[in-house]
Write a protein that binds this DNA or RNA. Sequence first.
RNA 1: GUGGUCGUCGGUUUCUAUCGCUUCUAUUCUUGAGAUAGAAGAGGAAAGUCAGGGCAGCAUAGAGCACCAUACUUCCGAAAGGGAAGGACUCGUAAGGGUACAGAAAGUGCCACAGAAAAUUACCGCCUGUUCUUAGGAGCAGGUAAGGGUGAAAACGCGGGGUAAGAGCCCACGACGCGGGCUGGGAACAGUUGGCGGGGGUAAACCUUAUGGGCUGAAAGGCCAUGUACACCGGGGCGUUUGGAGAAAUCUAAAAUAAGGACUGCUCGUCCAAUCUCGGGGGGUAGGUCGUUUGAACCUGUUGGCAACAGCAGGUCUAGAUAAAUGAUGGAAGUUCCGGCUUGCCGGAAUAACAGGAUCCUGCUUACAAGACGACCAUUUGU
RNA 2: UCCCUGGUGGUGUAAUGGCAGCACAAUACACUUUGGUUGUAUUAGUCGAGGUUCGAGCCCUUGCUAGGGAA
Length: 137
Amino acid sequence: MSTQHPINRHTFRKAERLCSKKLITDVFEKGNSFYIKPFKTLWIDTPLLTSVPAQLLITVPKRYMRDSWQRNSIKRLIREAYRLNKDPFYSILQQKQKQCALAIVYTGRKIITAAEAESAIILILCRLSEEYEKITG
RNA sequence: GUGGUCGUCGGUUUCUAUCGCUUCUAUUCUUGAGAUAGAAGAGGAAAGUCAGGGCAGCAUAGAGCACCAUACUUCCGAAAGGGAAGGACUCGUAAGGGUACAGAAAGUGCCACAGAAAAUUACCGCCUGUUCUUAGGAGCAGGUAAGGGUGAAAACGCGGGGUAAGAGCCCACGACGCGGGCUGGGAACAGUUGGCGGGGGUAAACCUUAUGGGCUGAAAGGCCAUGUACACCGGGGCGUUUGGAGAAAUCUAAAAUAAGGACUGCUCGUCCAAUCUCGGGGGGUAGGUCGUUUGAACCUGUUGGCAACAGCAGGUCUAGAUAAAUGAUGGAAGUUCCGGCUUGCCGGAAUAACAGGAUCCUGCUUACAAGACGACCAUUUGU
RNA sequence: UCCCUGGUGGUGUAAUGGCAGCACAAUACACUUUGGUUGUAUUAGUCGAGGUUCGAGCCCUUGCUAGGGAA
């Protein structure tokens, strides 16, 4: 598996996105959650249909950001930050033989810069890694 | 030069480094939502969803009413609450701008406050007659719209005649409205001539006239796969009359009819079934694919037309995602601005506003940074 | 993507085209030793822009904004 997804390539393909309606409802209804600065994160430990370690869903509510171009740009920033920083989290998941469904919800009301997004995403991924350490003991 | 009016263009440009996204094509083998290479990849408004269509489904014997929309003329356009040119009115010194711009003389309603009165009106006043009288006047009956501080709006304006007092009551001139004739124009309309008339405003109040209008929207709808249950609840109903068979229960045939449903608001009318119909609710699925991008398409040239636009010729194929693709960080050039002066160099800053396709077109409306351009008007100064 | 509804003081709500009200809240005063209750007074408003009208919260156009629905 790891040969198909080399660590040194920071990709973010369709397989790594959360598209299944069932999984999405599971994440939002049964998932664990925590809050770091402008993002709310929901996650659940569940077997996925594909071979990737984790699937991610990015969401910006229409209630807070009215214009679609603003929502799109924030989603792009989050995706970029996740893509560049996901490797430590993936390696932990692969060690533990686990799969994870993730949802990141932006709860701010203004546009953030790329640097702010990246630091917050790094914090979120560290927190998730800790949670998995606790689960597996 | 200053101020202004109308309009057009513009919309992060080019090269490059690292990482990355979507679609298509080719190659490859480990046959996977793989790898490599190449190509393509958001807007003038993609927006608001305001108008009209294409397309799709449902409905459709027909008629009437209701409801909704539109409303100067001609032309363009598939159509349009669309556009062009023109007319009328209106705002502006002007260039120009705006107009739901049919009917108030078919009818109904409304017009607060103020005012005598807001549309067949008499409160004060004026005048006539009459009664009383303290001789100033008061009461009663009638005539009268010339005058009365109001109001958004006051019963055409002004002059003369007339009268008891007055009044378009009559006349001249003027304004307004409705017909007729003539001239110009394709028409709206304009000019002119003569006739008739007396009427407040309001139709983005009801309404009248003319014209038009089925309903629902890609979560429409078709196909494949997966999966299941019409189990449950509520309303209505499987009826009545006549004929035949039969002792009867009942069965059967044809016609009519009550209640119900359909014809998408109502009426007429037509049609509909008998473990049936209408509504609610539940179970299951939670995937793929078509629709889906070649079209009233775009670009260039040319012809016709004042213009909107149309014809002809040549060329082009130009996003198709689906929890939803264009991004992040650098470098160089270019562009713009600021400062300095050697006037074409140096240094610094910025590289943007509005904003992201989701079925597709035509319009309308709204938002919009730096900058560029054209036409015209007013005014000032100089020549 | 498509469709629908609303917007009135700080909050909740009324209002035929004709002076924009009511309740709660807030502030001040009175009452009370003080607070509460009660009473009196005050402040504060038609989402923005344009149009129709003598006159728009209401009618029309357009924008802004809030919310809802649709396998």
